[in-house]
């Protein structure tokens, strides 16, 4: 038995490595010794993509807005000028549309916050773990799925002979002509973006330590006082974080105003100018408006520490 045992170290002599294996080893060693090369390899592709394609496009959007369209040929002429912006400021219709878009976006954001807080509070602090999981799942599912189908569903429900009027008729409440108005737009937008607000608000509420709330109660505060003075201030960044999506998605939309509304949004004007008139420079100039509004919103959100809750 004893002489059949291998001498120590014998099994460790490996066969000579193949060329591929040696190359792999050399690359491995190089990457191990030069962390910057590793970083460049990992980060390079995505940086290139986002900078060239996305940030580059945004920059080009800005440049295009200073060009103009040749009225005869329809081609884009790269003459620098403020014609598009003068037109935007001069024609009151564009101002009205911009104000309307932002106004409805504000109404939708406020509505969603008002709806999100109770449901998020219930999920975070009252529901049993099983119910909480179900609630979160039911928030996440519509968030990711079928934006267009959800708008279309409302178009069907709100139309004259749809579910809404039928239900109202059954309840002897007469009929409403909600379909295709600003009211229907407000309802549908609030519906569409509610999960975007609920989830960050939930995350914010869930993080509040119980001890803080108990301390407030022990010190004699009623629930409403605790909610107003302890819970709400701590959850505020989460609420603002959620509102970013509701606000941004509303001002960037043109499908819902087209399908369930009776008015035009900034997006509708842009879409028509790209699709029908083909006046890309003017569309680009108008697209700067929601971009600027959003930039201001994001700056305020950052001041309110919302990014840490995003």
């Amino acid at each position: 038995m004893a002489q059949r045992l291998m001498r120590p170290g014998e099994r460790l002599t490996a066969p000579p490595p193949s060329a591929v294996r040696r190359l792999r080893h050399r690359i491995g060693v190089f990457l191990h010794q030069v962390p910057a090369a590793r970083l460049a390899l990992l980060l390079g592709p995505v940086l290139l993509w986002m900078i060239v394609i996305y940030l580059g496009s945004l920059a080009l959007l800005f440049l295009t807005s200073f060009w103009r369209q040749d009225p005869v040929t329809g081609a884009i002429v790269q003459d620098w000028g403020l014609t598009n912006y003068q037109f935007l400021v001069g024609e009151s219709v564009y101002r009205i549309i911009a104000i309307r878009t932002v106004g409805i976006a504000v109404a939708v954001t406020v509505t969603d916050i008002a709806l999100a807080i109770p449901i998020a509070y219930y999920a975070a602090r009252i529901a049993s773990p099983r119910v909480r999981t179900l609630l979160l799942l039911s928030m996440v599912l519509p968030l990711w799925s079928s934006y267009l189908v959800r708008v279309y569903a409302w178009r069907t429900i709100l139309s004259g002979d749809g579910v809404l009027n039928w239900s109202l008729h059954q309840l002897h409440l007469g009929s409403v002509n909600l379909g295709f108005s600003r009211w229907s737009l407000w309802i549908v937008f609030s519906y569409l973006w509610l999960p975007y607000v609920t989830l960050p608000v939930y995350a914010a509420l869930e993080r509040i330590p119980n001890s803080l709330i108990e301390a407030s109660t022990d010190l004699g505060a009623r629930w409403i006082t605790t909610f107003r003075r302890v819970i709400l201030p701590i959850a505020l960044p989460g609420i603002i974080a959620g509102s970013i999506f509701a606000f941004s998605l509303t001002i960037g939309d043109y499908i819902a105003p087209d399908l369930v509304g009776d008015t035009e949004f900034i997006g509708n004007v842009i879409y028509q100018n790209v699709g029908i008139q083909n006046d890309i420079p003017f569309a680009a100039a108008y697209a700067i408006v929601p971009a600027l509004v959003m930039a201001v919103y994001l700056l305020i959100a950052r001041q309110l520490k919302a990014f840490e809750a995003l």
């Binding site: 980060l43 995505v46 986002m50 394609i53 996305y54 940030l55 580059g56 496009s57 945004l58 080009l60 959007l61 295009t64 884009i76 970013i244 999506f245 941004s248 998605l249 001002i251 960037g252 939309d253 043109y254 900034i266 997006g267 842009i270 879409y271 790209v274 890309i280 569309a283 680009a284 697209a287 929601p290 971009a291 959003m294 994001l298 990014f307 995003l310």
Partner: peptide
């Protein structure tokens, strides 16, 4: 990095769409 990555979702869809459209046109 994560800020730049979330930007295409956080900015209004019409801005992203219009920006890409200008680029494809050019």
């Amino acid at each position: 990095v994560s800020f730049v990555l979330i930007l295409p979702l956080a900015l209004p869809g019409i801005v992203t769409g219009m920006a890409l459209n200008s680029t494809i046109n050019l």
